[in-house]
Amino acid sequence: MKKPYHDLVKRLLDGELRLAELPPDLRAEGEEALRLLGAVDRTPVTLSPAVTSRVMATVRERTRSPARRAWRWLVTPRNVEVRFRIRPWLVAPALAAAAALVLVLARPQTPVSSTNVVFVRFMLHAPGAKSVTVAGTFNQWDQNAAPLIPAGTDGVWTTTLALPVGQHQYAFVVDGRRWVADPAAPAIDDGFGRRNSVVAVTRQGARTL
């Protein structure tokens, strides 16, 4: 980038000073500036009347278009001043309504506190089974959520789950397709012609029902 001219050289170019009035160390810069300025064509630019009339016609056309004027009105930034005039007693209900709105729209899932969770061991004797899982109300009846693992070689499958306090229905799923109620617990009709078992989890422990 070219270094800008010294202020005195700029004044020379503006005609405020003569070359001889510049300090000796600035004269060379002043001569160069004058030479460059002399090379500039100072003839005024003139456009043909046809171009001028076309440009002006376009400008008038754009100004007349209501859609364009509306668009310009919409997109042009402007200062807006809003003044609130409220009665102080209305602030409290307004804040309450806002809080209620926030509560309704951002309802958190009820967390399960660790004190309300009990570890429960599930066990099934299923010799020959290739896989055993347990599904119930505690895992949305997802038969893949809680696999049991073989305990030894005598066909006993087992797993331990953390369950919240409450009553939970469940059943075992053998080999991914056979639903089996817990043989070690009473079972009750599931409404589909099969049977479910129930485990009651209290803070003191868990019992099958």
């Binding site: 109300t137 949305q140 997802d142 639903w179 599931d190 409404g191």
Partner: peptide
């Protein structure tokens, strides 16, 4: 919701799930 999930997981026919 739980009853629906249970019925569907157990492969129960749709109309039976809805009835339950």
């Amino acid at each position: 919701i739980q009853k629906t999930l249970e019925g569907s997981a157990k492969g129960v026919p749709a109309e039976r799930v809805v009835a339950a």
